[in-house]
Amino acid sequence: MMKSLILETATKLLFPLLLMFSIFLFLRGHNDPGGGFIGGLVGAAAFALFAISSGTDKARKLLRINPTFMIGLGLFFAILSGVISVMAGTPFLTGQWAFPVVFGADLSLGSPILFDIGVYLVVVGFTLAVIFSLEEEG
């Protein structure tokens, strides 16, 4: 952790922006540059910045869930998306799609999106597990 008022203040402003940017990158990933890997890295960078400026204790509290748990959760989602394909009678990890209209908006929901969420979580979890551990090493 670096004690710097400027950094801390800047991070407070940047952090929510980075986090939103991360989710934005993730969501547009299927049609525009972005996706689980990129979104995950931005999200991880946001928390890493926060951890460096305000300490890992606060960062962990903000994250709410343990990064190693996040890795496991990510793998679970990724595999779950494959299991959905199997249950639909297609080979493991074949994309399954539905196009419901909710409140007048066209949604395209597919198992690849669930898979990408898995990727996102693993990338964030991995990066934060490493950075938090090293930061706490002192």
């Binding site: 299927h30 996706g35 595999i79 998306s81 799609w97 990408d116 990727v119």
Partner: peptide
């Protein structure tokens, strides 16, 4: 087939998802 316009991402999460896994 895969309903995605970003071909790179579609390869990652659909066509070659097993590799990504």
């Amino acid at each position: 087939i895969a309903h995605g316009r970003n071909i790179v991402n579609v390869i990652l999460v659909d066509f070659r998802a097993l590799d990504t896994l």
